[in-house]
Design a binder for these strands. Sequence first.
DNA 1: CCTTGCCATGGCAACGTTTTCATCCTAGCG
DNA 2: CGCTAGGATGAAAACGTTGCCATGGCAAGG
Lengths: 340, 340
Amino acid sequence: MSRNLQPKPPTIKDVAVLAGVSMSTVSRVLNGSAAVQSETAERVRRAVTQLDFVLSASARSLRPGVRSMTWGLLVDAVESHYFSTLIAELDRAAQDHGSTLLVSVTQKEWAREKHLIKEMSSRRVDGLFVVPANGDVLGERSRLSGAPIVYVDRIPSGVVADVVTFDYYKAMAEIVEELWVQGHRRMAFIGGEVDTDPGSRRYAAWNDVLRRHGGTPDPDLVSVGHLVAGTATEAVAGMLRSDRPPTAVVTTTGLLLLGVLRAIALEGADIEAACTEEIDSAFLSPVPLTLVAADFTLLVSNAVELLTARIENAGEPPTTRLLPTGRVRLDPLRSSTLPS
Amino acid sequence: MSRNLQPKPPTIKDVAVLAGVSMSTVSRVLNGSAAVQSETAERVRRAVTQLDFVLSASARSLRPGVRSMTWGLLVDAVESHYFSTLIAELDRAAQDHGSTLLVSVTQKEWAREKHLIKEMSSRRVDGLFVVPANGDVLGERSRLSGAPIVYVDRIPSGVVADVVTFDYYKAMAEIVEELWVQGHRRMAFIGGEVDTDPGSRRYAAWNDVLRRHGGTPDPDLVSVGHLVAGTATEAVAGMLRSDRPPTAVVTTTGLLLLGVLRAIALEGADIEAACTEEIDSAFLSPVPLTLVAADFTLLVSNAVELLTARIENAGEPPTTRLLPTGRVRLDPLRSSTLPS
DNA sequence: CCTTGCCATGGCAACGTTTTCATCCTAGCG
DNA sequence: CGCTAGGATGAAAACGTTGCCATGGCAAGG
């Protein structure tokens, strides 16, 4: 009969016995929580290395009042452009802070987000960064207790909480404004969900700027609700083949931008494109491109600041921070070799 | 004086009191570990929902023998092309299995990998997926105890363990072979680290195939050790501007492929390109492209299979699995509109 | 020399859960 | 009607850690 041979990890007791001291002393050495004679401490440290001992985070976080030195991050979906960047930046920030970052994915489902928040709380994370999903129709989000939460990149509905996000309204407004000034009157809008947060701000900005200039947004040039790049490609291809094609296409996410560029390449169109997110393959664009540059280092430092403050002191009123964005202009590299 | 008002999460005792039963009974209802009268169980469940109670994973995993229903994933770096895909697939697999996935990043540093393995173990994950970093000069990896580990995508050095990776040697060999058959005699090789696992296999394949055909790899056409896209761009641009430019460029990672394509676009070169990873913006390539398609769903299902087997039964000898890859051929979309 | 006080250390309870063991009750059978 | 078997439930120990309290020793001050 084959037993499970996974050797049990050593406990603080094993260390204590090996070092010839009490468990309390080992704990004191490991946490530096009280003075221990240097020779004793050295003996303990030797035992620790010899046994390859690590304190059990589970047992440790059982005690009330102890920080687990762990942060959680819940991302909405891996398709998001900022996914890698956000994890990279937060991981670095956590490391600097001496904490470990645990990541999980909500898949844009509120039920899953709720479950994972509880799951992370039950692991006693000190705090959580959450890219909120939509769908909290019951206002349950406001009743969540447990670890403090800082919402990131998207403004959650139905709850007053700490939020850090970019000023996507302004970002989109500036892009549309600029295109208008350049003379574009037929701009297409390709978006994802426009009734939930970041999409709704972008869509509102697009409408507002066009209206302010007296233009009436042409419904034939608006196509929203895209979840994947493929449908965006079809939508834009259709527009480009129509009687009155757009002279510019504005899109909201990097994922959709790829879909749009695909359509532009397929149709061999020569128009302007713009996006309120960056993509790393932007330089391959066959057409001139304007991108909104969002500094995720800034986002993360703000989020970390808010979370640590909240962990220290839960009483303060919640804050919402709208961070400024930059812009990048790219002309197609191959344009000189294209027939003019 | 502002106190920390973070309300303590309810315990199983609170539920027991509210439901008018003992803690044991609550535990039994929650785990289904023993029969409980249906009416009593119902009362407990009501109390659980009313208090929004969740079992503390920390306290739970303290008991020996209990599964935490948690898996860990340690990724080497977020710049890796497969990063998002791997997390997405593993997250789905974990969810199907009823487990939660916790992700952390080793940043390609062995010290950090070691630390995180212990950290995850101390959180009592049932098992770990690890994309191994290099640098374990002391052979410490083989002495790691704690949760069972399945290494993913890269073959760790100095340890016999469960590994699942793609057959990158064969993938590269096939690509080079095909280019040779097409008549290419001056192929450039742009790679990252070639003395550690997946890079070493790819580099070996490139050399082997060229040698088998009697060709001598031109050192001027080999440039390795690239960590970012920028240096690859410079290297390829240099080659393209030289007296004897390559007629094809083979590269190893998606990150470097972008750098290569940038050089090709900048120089307006008309050559072949190939890569042993996929990128989602491949269709924007200005030149014909051959990509190796790696099915990460397959990778993950194999890894999960190995890990669950290992969790059930630690005694079995370790396995190494080399998974087959596919290939994708892309012709540039705009080629018809380019001057021929 | 005796007392006071501090410093180093050990003992022990508690954290929230699961599980074994014991207890009680009921129903079924002789 | 009495006894037993079994099902439902409660009490308590244990998991690994930390912090409070107690203890003992030693130095300094009276």
